[in-house]
Design a protein around this nucleic acid. Structure first.
Lengths: 145, 145
DNA sequence: AGTTATAAATGGAATTATTCTAATTATTAA
DNA sequence: TTAATAATTAGAATAATTCCATTTATAACT
């Protein structure tokens, strides 16, 4: 059994790939579906084991390849916190991340327009920011811990 | 020949270490001096080769050990951009980093109090941020490139 | 449908930054 | 000056990721 995207996601998925002349393979669909599914910022390793349940023949290289492709198409984003393994996130709105040092869990934090533009205003003349990255670490939601 | 800190830095250096019951060794002084010297955000690798000029017997493990110690004492800060090697920075004021994708160079960007407090205000109730990290990447200072 | 050209997937080896380990050397306190 | 402890050392180990050569799947064209 393969991991099937629901219709609107499937459309976004194949359109984004086709726009770049790339093929919507079942491995790519599965990886994308898994990232959309739990939204728990899984690592490549996490994704690998989840993909295996649907497509047992999948290799690590494929997971990395798929992730690179999905990132390249703008379908998912990489989240890097310090030197820990890269995590993947389907939330494409401007947001920051908060990592709880106790649980390792990562939370999305929305950034309002005003704060976002202030942050962008920090960039000096002559510099052109393509990417902005804001992250926090500390102790997470006391209620959940 | 060893790398000697100028008097005010040397004092900060040995005080910070002694406060934690750690020894101000020549390797630690050298690593710290090198980070203060060029302020170009060197990697452990960069630091290793620079240290070797002064203390040829120094090993990689020592460089990593020294860096860990210096970070632990709050004398230097780690700068992580994506998955690239960790860089080290003696600037302890609140500041962001800008990485030029063309040259690889990293620039410090000051963060004003107002913007900083707005960023901190993004953290939701129940979360306690110990660390905040803001970084940009894109194309750097056109005049310098 | 069948062929062909090309893109993607695969398994395993290689790479890279970093950490660990056990033995040696240096520093500090008594 | 010695003893206790901390730091350094060389090299092995690890972990995440990338590379490579081969096989398989996909899409375009008969």
């Amino acid at each position: 059994m393969t991991f099937s995207l629901t219709s609107p996601f499937r459309k976004t998925f194949s359109n984004s790939l086709r726009e770049k002349g790339l093929r919507p393979t079942k491995q790519r669909e599965c990886v994308y579906g898994i990232i959309l599914d739990k939204r728990d910022h899984p690592t490549a390793d996490d994704i690998y084991y989840r993909v295996k349940k649907y497509l047992p023949g999948t290799s690590f290289a494929t997971v990395y390849n798929c992730l690179e492709t999905l990132v390249g198409c703008g379908l998912v984003r990489q989240v890097n916190m310090d030197r820990s393994p890269t995590r993947y996130c389907p939330n494409l709105t401007p947001h920051a991340h908060f990592k709880c040092n106790k649980t390792g869990r990562i939370y999305d934090i929305q950034i309002d327009e005003d704060t976002l533009s202030r942050m962008n205003a920090l960039v000096p003349q002559g510099f052109e920011a393509e990417n902005i990255d804001l992250s926090f670490s500390g102790t997470g939601n006391a209620l959940e811990n």
